[in-house]
Design a protein around this nucleic acid. Structure first.
Lengths: 352, 352
DNA sequence: CGAATTTGCTAAAACGATAAACTAAGGTTC
DNA sequence: GAACCTTAGTTTATCGTTTTAGCAAATTCG
């Protein structure tokens, strides 16, 4: 590989001069125009590419951020990554990725430190997955951020406003005329499940007052079959008692609902409205494309990367003392799985 | 940050000694046991973490591979990445990711060279996306590989055996008794579309002989609505002429078929069998979970990383002269969207 | 015309590690 | 007891770059 030394030799000048020119500091540091041109020309001719490793050595900087995730083969994590990548690229940072799937926390943090990454972004559905890494990173003063993870211990944390999302979903359904709205939660207990459930409850209290205690059941998104019994039981009730609309913890669960309803001959949206959460492919490609609360995954990635890089640039000053936590707005995407409830139409006809 | 110098100073020995011990070359190069123990102890106490950047400088190695993809927010690419990551981790390589989405080829290859990555893995549905990068990487003798991309120019190329997959799908359907089987292709013309189409044709010739020219239509996976007219037209034919089974280019297209069939009141799998391709989430979560040709994305990633790293370790000798191209086996996953055709049963009843 | 300033460039140190060659002390062998 | 070997390290060079300080020649100024 060609080095600045080689260029210097060819031009019979010092490598300092070459370095200055190639870093565009030639004008300010008074390298003559002719020399500048020659350096540019020869470096191009010889196919010079600067050695970032050598550069990092002396500057002490290393413009690389690490994205440590529980997995990469999950659609929404891919979207987050995409946002991180876009912003990092824009700011001339490279991105390294790490998995918890085939690696221990000990191992990952060691690598991150040895490779002198400038900052770290985490995501996992399980908050505790990063305790060790966060602790060690803090000791070494590596700025950290979490994305879509309500763990404030990292200094920087970007999530989506799931509470608001669930509330909006209820508001929309109430606006369509629904009164019996239930919520199907995931089996896990995380900040996500809690926020969405609370948002749902708040929505009911606000938009469907006097409807009694909101009904919440627990499904199991991961395995189709596991979710069927609870869903089936709620849909088996008589038509005047069972919910006319279901808000689901995730698009996956909403798909499960679609499956069960299909088997039971319940029509969506005529007999039952369904709202999902996330806006993943499964929502778009469902038989009845799902109305869903779209989370701004890409934007979350972008924002997180942006704030993290700012922290890095500001010489990592006291992020832990002034934590930056932000919730991004969600957006209800209305597709085909929601409609006014049947009952209301019938009632209307009867009373006339 | 603590350096080996600091450790050496504290112990009043030379940094070479420290280096040797910390690289486990202390025994072979005769550093006394007592000194070895002291170095280990003090380096732990001081929280030493070796500087991979400095190390790379002198060794000339940099155990990093780059994964350059058209995007990261696509489910199957995430799976490939997962495999790459697993294998790279196992072999102590780090992985950097790059997007074509927000970056030019010129920019990416420049970064890759400047950062002295040891090898590059590509994926994009469009073969030509990497021409420039491949060319430059070759000039700099950086070993390259493509994954799930039938472009042999990279020396290493791992794909799945899509031809076989489509053929297997037809074989399975023929085995169920289907005779009128059609294929719905994507609108694009890539190696993928060609391989699957040819596999389908081969399957028909082999397993449904004398059924005339196989029918192939073109759908549009990307936008739901665009695919509807061609699918609807084929399903609108009279029941004794229209296909009893459809093999689809992708799971997405298969979902489109499910949507159209649902609207038209055609039951899957009773009236129509549907087979997808890829085995993505949309297949698992479809109303009628899809029978589909599962591609081994993770394994493809693993295999690619493994061969690439081998090439890197073997000092990148003439991979371009001895290209390694491999097709991995696909696997038909049978779910609920396929069943024997109705007609056969009816016929059976009539003739009795 | 001499002093001060500007211009154009360079020498040397540093970053943190590894690698190759070398040394000094003590123990063996013949 | 001289030659050789072993042990346990050390010295020096090197990787490719940036940074700091400096120096000589040319130019400007009073």
């Amino acid at each position: 590989m060609v080095t600045i030394q080689d260029i210097a030799q060819k031009l019979q000048i010092s490598k300092t001069t070459v370095s200055l020119v190639l870093n565009n500091r030639g004008k300010e540091l008074r390298i003559g125009e002719h020399t500048r041109n020659m350096v540019e020309k020869v470096s191009l001719e010889m196919g010079y590419a600067r050695n970032e490793i050598a550069r990092s050595m002396v500057t002490g900087r290393n413009d690389v951020i690490a994205f440590v995730a529980s997995a990469t083969d999950v659609e929404y994590i891919g979207k987050i990554m995409s946002g991180i990548l876009e912003e990092a690229t824009r700011q001339s940072f490279a991105v390294k990725i790490y998995h918890l799937a085939h690696n221990t926390q000990e191992n990952i943090i060691r690598q991150l430190i040895e490779q002198r990454v400038a900052g770290i972004i985490f995501h996992s559905p399980r908050n505790t997955d990063f305790d060790l890494i966060l602790h060690e990173a803090d000791r070494k003063h590596i700025p950290c951020a979490t994305v879509n993870l309500s763990n404030a211990t990292a200094g920087i944390g970007i999530t989506s406003d799931d509470f608001q999302g669930a509330r909006d979903a209820v508001k929309y359904l109430a606006g369509l005329g629904h009164r019996r709205i239930s919520y199907i939660s995931d089996k896990s207990e995380t900040e996500f499940t809690i926020n969405r459930e609370n948002g749902f409850i708040a929505g009911i209290k606000e938009h469907v007052p006097g409807s009694g205690n909101p009904r919440i059941i627990h499904g199991f998104a991961t395995q189709n079959d596991e979710s069927e019994p609870p869903i089936r039981s709620i849909l088996s009730e008589s038509e005047d008692k069972r919910p006319t609309a279901l808000v689901c913890y995730s698009d996956y669960l909403a798909c499960n609902v679609l499956q069960v309803a299909y088997k039971m001959g319940i029509k969506v949206p005529e007999d039952l409205s369904v709202i999902g959460f996330a806006d993943l492919d499964v929502a778009k490609y469902a038989v009845v494309p799902l109305t869903t609360v779209a989370q701004p995954f890409e934007q979350m990635g972008k924002e997180t990367a942006n704030i993290l890089i700012k922290a890095i640039r500001n010489k990592r000053t006291d992020i832990l003392d002034n934590p930056e936590n932000r919730k991004l707005e969600v957006r209800l995407v209305v597709r085909k799985s929601t409609a006014p409830p049947k009952k209301i139409k019938l009632k209307g006809k009867c009373t006339e």
